[in-house]
Amino acid sequence: MKIRKIGRGEEKIELQMTPMIDIVFQLLAFFIMTFKITVPEGDFNIKMPLAGPSTGAVSEDLPPIKIRLRASANGELATIEFGQRRMGRDFPGLREQIRQMIGDEAGPGGSNLEAELDCDFDLRYEYVVEAITAVSGYITPDGRMGKLIEKIKFAPPRPGQ
């Protein structure tokens, strides 16, 4: 910034804009070049150590809730089996069944139960995430997250092609 003072009380300030505009445009160019629109991502945490050999001791934990996901030949979901029930592709129905099972009517809250997903090899992964979503919780009408089953594991992999 260059300040010149002219006599007789007259004052003139001359601002050098060029360097500032240069740097501002360089910054703008940098941000535009590096900018990428990304969709926010979220996580499902699974703690799943490798099952060790059975010691013969009786576990005090309840047996896991088994959910079987069967795939058609092209990898689409054929049916969900929950216990003895065949539920088609009804994930909301699966969630309702889980809610009834763990007695969630009183309000949202987690359960100590464990769910085991048993999936066909060729099943498309998006159905697994849908199943995990249905099992692990729901969104309440006021937009909060209600938790159902937090412990989720996979059954041993089924042989594939």
């Binding site: 969709v39 991502e41 979220g42 703690k47 979503t133």
Partner: peptide
Amino acid sequence: KFVLRAMQ
């Protein structure tokens, strides 16, 4: 410890 990542 595993984290399955999904799109929001």
